[in-house]
């Protein structure tokens, strides 16, 4: 797991100790721009742009999850679509059974589904945590390219399972006819839904920052940079990594649940390896191991997708060229360009 050393300055993160570093300012700036754009679009009667902002917040949340494993923990997971998709399916399956008033998985004795967002989010956290624990426990025995590939293999397994499980639509996927609800709020209102997404994104960013400032973050950083030193300090690196991987999967899972609700649909495409690649692209575009990197990456990626898609049917070609240019010439991603190569948060 030494492959990431060159990527990230060896300076241990001094998160938050300098109150108004450049990166903090930019992070807040991005959040404010996104919120202002959503509110402005809402007032202008343009729900499309509000939903686009929700999409950015959700994709960013998935990226925040991956960033914890990939950026801070140095675990290059090429299988995070698994958690994104499982989160989506939790929301979809819960809503499906709530709509039908049938017990979960059609098994009598199990409780009926639920269309309450908090219940679904907690379930997504729980299920993704368990799956991430199983995948992490096996995968963390490997390192380097093997780790990349074994996480990909697990995601492919879950993908094929979803494709051929007919109860919940298989390849066709599962529509969510009525958006899941939160008591007291009208979740169908685009701005309300955006606020929910943004609140969860903010919470995830806040928690990540807290953790990275705490002993856990110091241990995780040390596990990435110098495993032996961590071991001589009496801390086993593996449980630390596993914990980070599990939390990472859980955050991405919640993003998946939100994404399913945004689209009113969940399907195997949420589990495909292209999706894993996209989440990775977002993290790298924004800047690996930067707290607000995934948000910057998500804004850039979704905007490119929307703008280029409107211009040409060969838009993926140009997306590829932009990505390639970022890797070759703009190391450190957007945050690297904006906030310089040093890392504060």
């Amino acid at each position: 797991m030494t492959s990431l050393e060159s990527h990230i300055p060896s300076r241990s993160p001094s998160l938050g100790r300098r109150p108004l570093s450049r990166e903090t300012v930019i992070g807040w700036g991005l959040i404010l721009v996104l919120v202002a754009a959503a509110v402005f679009a809402h007032l202008a009667g343009e729900p499309f742009y509000v939903n686009l902002a929700s999409r950015i917040a959700i994709v960013a949340l998935a990226g925040v999850g991956l960033n914890l494993a990939l950026g801070f923990g140095g675990m290059v997971s090429f299988g995070h679509a698994a958690f994104f998709g499982i989160g989506g399916y939790v929301a979809g399956i819960g809503a499906f059974h709530a709509f039908d008033q049938s017990p979960l998985f059609g098994l009598s004795g199990l409780p009926a589904g639920s269309d309450l967002m908090p219940v679904l989010w907690l379930s997504a956290l729980l299920v993704c945590g368990l799956v991430a624990y199983a995948i992490g426990a096996i995968s963390l025995g490997t390192s380097g390219v093997y780790f990349i590939m074994i996480t990909l293999a697990f995601a492919q397994m879950i993908y094929y399972f979803a494709v051929s499980w007919p109860t919940y639509g298989g390849e066709d996927g599962l529509p969510i006819y009525i958006r899941n609800s939160l008591p007291g709020l009208d979740t169908n209102n685009p701005l309300v839904f955006f606020t929910l997404c943004m609140a969860l994104l903010g919470l995830a960013l806040f928690l990540t920052q807290r953790w990275m400032n705490a002993r856990f973050g110091a241990a995780l950083t040390m596990a990435r940079l110098n495993e032996t030193r961590l071991a001589t300090a009496g801390v086993e690196p593996r449980p630390i990594r596993l914990a980070a991987f599990v939390i990472s999967g859980m955050i991405t899972g919640v993003a998946g649940a939100l994404f399913a609700d945004l689209n009113g649909f969940v399907g195997p495409s949420m589990l495909s390896w292209h999706r894993s690649g996209e989440i990775m692209v977002i993290v790298i575009l924004g800047g690996v191991g930067r707290l607000c990197g995934p948000l910057a990456g998500a804004i850039l990626f979704v905007m490119m997708e929307t703008l280029l898609g409107g211009l040409t049917e060969y838009w993926q070609l140009f997306l590829g060229v932009v990505l390639l240019a970022v890797v070759l010439f703009a190391r450190g991603g957007v945050m690297g360009l904006l906030a310089g190569r040093e890392r504060y948060a």
Binding site: A41, G45, F48, Y49
Partner: peptide, 15 residues
């Protein structure tokens, strides 16, 4: 910023 511009542009177009 781009988003804002877009949104306002679209608002004008819509009207």
């Amino acid at each position: 910023m781009k988003k804002l511009l877009n949104a306002s542009l679209a608002a004008v177009m819509a009207s």
